[in-house]
């Protein structure tokens, strides 16, 4: 089954989530990112202009959410793996731990008033900023590119 599926996709070209994608064989194309792109385009190109004024803001927000989810479907798995690696690094933990337990452990250390060595503090801050930059690439691309004052 999976082999037949793979050869079909190979035969019909590939999009951003196409051949080589981890989700291969789960569902037929379009994949999640491609479907969200289609829904976002419909909302942006046709629906906003067709709904009454009081709904336009909500439709614009909904279209933007589809764009966020489209990027999440594309970058999310790699972002999560990178965050797991960074958190495991600063915590000295195994990197097969799940993300929620790593985040919970770090949040608990930060909430504890016990002192944190400056070097560790620095590496925690760097790890958190790297994760936030990856989150922003999904939620608001370009937000971290500003050269102005914070």
């Amino acid at each position: 089954m999976a082999l037949a599926h793979a050869s079909l996709i190979a035969g019909f070209g590939s999009g951003p989530g196409g051949a080589g994608c981890e989700a291969l064989g789960v569902q037929y194309r379009p994949d999640a990112a491609e479907l969200l792109d289609a829904v976002a385009s419909l909302l942006e190109d046709d629906v906003i202009a067709a709904v009454p004024a009081h709904l336009q803001h909500q439709v614009r927000v909904a279209a933007n959410l589809c764009r966020i989810l489209e990027r999440e479907a594309t970058f999310g798995p790699a972002n999560d793996a990178a965050e797991r690696g960074r958190l495991a690094g600063v915590l000295g933990a195994d990197d097969d731990r799940d993300l929620v337990s790593l985040r919970t452990e770090l949040a608990a250390i930060l909430a504890d008033p016990a002192p944190i060595e400056p070097a560790l503090d620095r590496s925690i801050r760097d790890a958190l900023l790297a994760t936030l930059r990856a989150d922003l690439a999904v939620a608001k691309p370009g937000y971290d590119a500003t050269t102005g004052a914070p």
């Binding site: 803001h57 909500q58 927000v61 909904a62 933007n64 959410l65 966020i68 801050r125 958190l128 900023l129 936030l132 930059r133 989150d135 922003l136 939620a139 608001k140 937000y143 971290d144 914070p150």
Partner: peptide
């Protein structure tokens, strides 16, 4: 319940980023 309120959850990273960059400088 509102799509606008729901979307606020995905703006948290913006403010966390602003806070950490302010701390950084």
């Amino acid at each position: 319940s509102s799509v606008v309120m729901a979307a606020s959850g995905r703006r948290v990273a913006e403010l966390a980023y602003d806070a950490l960059t302010l701390i950084d400088v």
